[in-house]
């Protein structure tokens, strides 16, 4: 399996608060990795540093052979690193179809591999996430789970190599969690490497081939899910002494 993402010694501070310290992580192409940790453990900061929303102060991020450290977020997306947001952030004045058009125009068409049939691609993406026929609706008319699906469809519209799904199931019902889970698994089968950040352990365990645990900005475990959850340090972080 070829290495897609290689993070070494990643560090980030906010004033005196150490959000991330010396985080190392390697992910191979096609892998499904779960990233867990208690609230405030640095998961979102880690994602933001990977995606370019925040600049890491120490360490290096290599993605698909490129060093990302000084690259703006949009350039990382163009290289194939896409994300969905913890709280869905659709473009509210644009329809669902137009929301998908943005990454197609600004990512796929800038790769110089010819132009896609945008409407057909939008319909294909909407079919994939189960929003068939909703292209003309505004995001405000979508339910919570539909909003999450739009968020994932928009990330997929950029045709990423690596998708970071940041708490894509938060606040959803049991059935809705299963829907999103099935969707993420299908995306992975289509060849997209996925990092899933999640608190719902049932989903994490079902999805992940590998589990990484962050606590207080440090990586404390990385391995097979069944082994990681039995790790005493992980138990301590979640359940206390």
């Amino acid at each position: 399996m070829s290495l897609l993402l290689e993070v070494s010694g990643l560090g980030k501070r906010f004033g005196g608060f150490v959000a991330l310290e010396g985080v190392d992580l390697s992910i191979g192409a096609g892998e499904r990795v779960g990233l867990i940790g208690p609230n405030g453990s640095g998961k979102s900061t880690f994602v933001n540093c990977l995606c370019g929303t925040l600049r890491n102060e120490t360490g290096q991020v290599r993605f698909d052979g490129h060093v990302l450290n000084r690259l703006a977020a949009h350039r990382r997306t163009r290289l194939g690193l896409a994300r969905s947001f913890q709280l869905p952030r659709p473009f509210p004045s644009l329809t669902v179809g137009e929301n998908l058009r943005i990454p197609i125009e600004y990512v796929v068409h800038t790769r110089g591999l010819g132009r896609l049939d945008v409407p057909a691609r939008c319909e294909e993406l909407l079919d994939m996430v189960g929003l068939t026929g909703r292209a003309d609706d505004l995001p405000a008319g979508l339910t919570q789970v539909e909003m999450r699906k739009l968020e994932l469809a928009r990330a997929m519209a950029a045709e990423p190599k690596l998708l970071i799904a940041d708490e894509a199931m938060a606040g959803l019902s049991h059935q809705e969690v299963d829907d999103i889970l099935a969707l993420l698994l299908r995306m992975n089968q289509d060849g997209v490497t996925i990092i899933m950040i999640e608190h719902i352990m049932r989903a994490v365990m079902q999805f992940s081939q590998r589990l990484v645990v962050l606590v207080a900005g440090r990586k404390i475990a990385d391995g097979l899910p069944a082994e990681v959850i039995r790790n005493p340090e992980v138990e301590r972080a979640y359940l206390g002494e």
């Binding site: 995606c51 370019g52 929303t53 703006a72 977020a73 949009h74 350039r75 997306t77 163009r78 896409a82 994300r83 947001f85 952030r89 659709p90 473009f91 509210p92 004045s93 644009l94 137009e98 058009r101 943005i102 990454p103 125009e105 600004y106 990512v107 068409h109 800038t110 928009r154 990330a155 519209a157 950029a158």
Partner: peptide
Amino acid sequence: SRLGDGFAAIRDDELAAEASGVPTL
């Protein structure tokens, strides 16, 4: 044009625009 879509994305949500590949700056 594509430019207009980019402007609209910036107006609606700059962070999401950047994550969608829009060179916001």
